[in-house]
Simulated assay, not measured.
Amino acid sequence: MDILTPVTLAGPHARLEPLSPDHCAGLQAAAADGELWKLWYTTIPSAEGMQVEIERRLGLHAKGTMLPFTVFNADGEVAGMTTFMNVDRVQRRVEIGSTWYRASSQRTPLNTQCKLLLLTHAFEALDCIAVEFRTHRLNTQSRRAIERLGAQLDGILRAHQRMPDGTLRDTAVYSITANEWPTVKTHLQWQLIKPR
């Protein structure tokens, strides 16, 4: 299967569907839950900018560098977006990124379920050798979430890119390799069933 083939992935706590312009209203409502675009250390579209963001992601899919998803929670409500991005078909590597969830879905099983679905697809259906995660060095919430998955810190790309407000972003790069996947999978499955 090609990495960029659209697919729906589903589990008890989340469903990932190929991104569609039809999801715009739900994504606008999700971004408004917590006014996520106000977080300075990340780039999340505002309600007004959602249509442009959808078009951007679908354009990157057409160019062969991204497979974007809309994330739905267990109740069928739009919860956010995620992607396979920086697709390397030759080396069979992807990054899971450009992910955001409505505030009311954060700190729930949703993120763990999404990552389990995406990682299972990457390693078991797409035969990837590694999956990366990147985030702002100062986005401690995101870094802790990535570390809870079992990803290892590869390093920090200093002054890696300019943020919309003009500040420079140091990017923390994490990865999970194919050899690590069986243990990480067991860990994520346990995270979803352990008592809370």
Rank of each mutant, 00 (worst) to 15 (best):
L157G: 00
R144D: 14
G155D: 00
L138G: 09
I156L: 01
T140A: 06
V173F: 09
I146N: 00
Q152K: 13
P164N: 08
L168Y: 09
M163F: 13
T183Y: 13
A151F: 04
I176R: 12
T140G: 00
Q161R: 14
V173Y: 07
G155P: 00
G155N: 06
I146S: 00
P164V: 13
A172V: 03
Q152N: 10
R143T: 08
Q152E: 11
N139C: 08
D154G: 05
A159I: 06
R162F: 06
L157N: 00
D154K: 13
T167P: 00
L138F: 03
M163T: 02
G150P: 06
Q141F: 03
Q152R: 10
T167S: 14
A151I: 10
R162M: 04
L168S: 11
D154R: 12
H160F: 12
M163G: 06
D170P: 01
Y174G: 06
R169K: 14
R143K: 08
G150A: 13
L157C: 03
S175L: 09
R148L: 11
L153H: 02
G166T: 05
A178R: 04
I156S: 03
R148Q: 14
E180C: 03
T183F: 11
T171S: 03
W181V: 00
S175T: 04
A151N: 06
T140D: 03
Q152C: 15
G150H: 07
A145C: 02
R143Y: 15
L168R: 00
E180P: 05
R158P: 00
I146Y: 04
R169N: 03
S142T: 07
R148N: 15
S142W: 08
D154E: 10
R169H: 09
T177C: 04
M163V: 06
N139K: 05
I156D: 11
R143D: 04
I156A: 10
R158V: 05
A159L: 11
S142E: 11
R162Q: 03
L149C: 02
W181D: 00
